[in-house]
Amino acid sequence: MMKCNFGGSIIVLLIVVFLVIFPKHLAVASRVTLPLHPNEKRNCTYAITVETTCTKGADTSNHVSIRFGDSNSNDIMVNRLNSKRVRTLDPLEPQVLDDVPIKPFQTCTIDQFEHTSKCVELPVCYLYLKLTGDDDWRPGFVQIRVLEGPHLSSNYFYFRRYLPRNVWHGVDVCDNKSPPFGLN
């Protein structure tokens, strides 16, 4: 005579289900909730939004570099911003345009770029631009959004004037006394 042990079968089935389903959920949860090892650095993705004003002659084909960071000296630099363009946004209608010019920094446009680098620890509080080349450029505003931590994103940094060439020019609203990255 054969005995059926449904209790043992159910327990085995539950263990198999637990081992198959829950490790995926635990792995996802560990990425979100577990702190990093102190020596481990993580990367963040930054959405960089740049407006070029509508003033005649405000556009540029020069190289534009950007440098930004937080008051803990976490300095992020993109040597050639115009090579990492994602899309152009219409200033009046922020949806993505399909038939946009290839070249960034055209008069009366808003361009968006993405950059992945080390993460800032505090909100972005300084931003500098550097124009390298022969023509002028008049940016309107720049904003940095930290996609992994919106609370670390910057406010708008307003320029609204032609940038000097070949020098860092920008805004620092950090609370620290020393200038960022050795600027004096």
Results as ranks from 00 to 15, higher is better:
169 H>G: 02
11 I>M: 03
23 P>L: 05
145 R>M: 13
65 S>Q: 02
14 L>V: 13
168 W>H: 07
37 H>N: 13
131 L>M: 13
146 V>P: 00
97 L>R: 10
179 P>I: 09
4 C>Q: 12
130 K>S: 06
179 P>K: 11
98 D>W: 06
123 P>F: 02
88 T>I: 14
84 K>A: 13
179 P>L: 15
64 V>M: 08
66 I>M: 04
14 L>Y: 03
39 N>G: 11
23 P>A: 05
96 V>N: 01
131 L>R: 13
146 V>E: 03
169 H>M: 09
33 T>D: 12
129 L>M: 06
55 T>L: 10
162 Y>H: 10
17 V>N: 07
97 L>H: 05
100 V>H: 04
168 W>N: 05
164 P>N: 04
7 G>Q: 12
111 D>T: 03
117 S>Q: 03
13 L>S: 08
87 R>E: 12
71 S>I: 15
72 N>H: 07
40 E>M: 13
98 D>F: 10
52 T>M: 00
89 L>N: 06
92 L>S: 09
175 D>Q: 08
13 L>A: 11
72 N>A: 09
120 V>M: 03
97 L>F: 07
164 P>E: 05
27 A>M: 12
72 N>G: 03
33 T>A: 13
39 N>Q: 14
162 Y>S: 13
161 R>V: 15
45 T>A: 06
130 K>D: 01
40 E>L: 15
71 S>R: 11
1 M>F: 10
36 L>K: 06
37 H>C: 12
19 L>Q: 04
181 F>T: 09
71 S>D: 14
53 T>K: 00
113 F>S: 00
67 R>E: 05
21 I>M: 08
88 T>H: 06
6 F>H: 07
139 P>I: 14
58 A>K: 01
78 V>N: 03
87 R>Q: 08
120 V>Y: 02
58 A>P: 00
136 D>Y: 12
4 C>T: 12
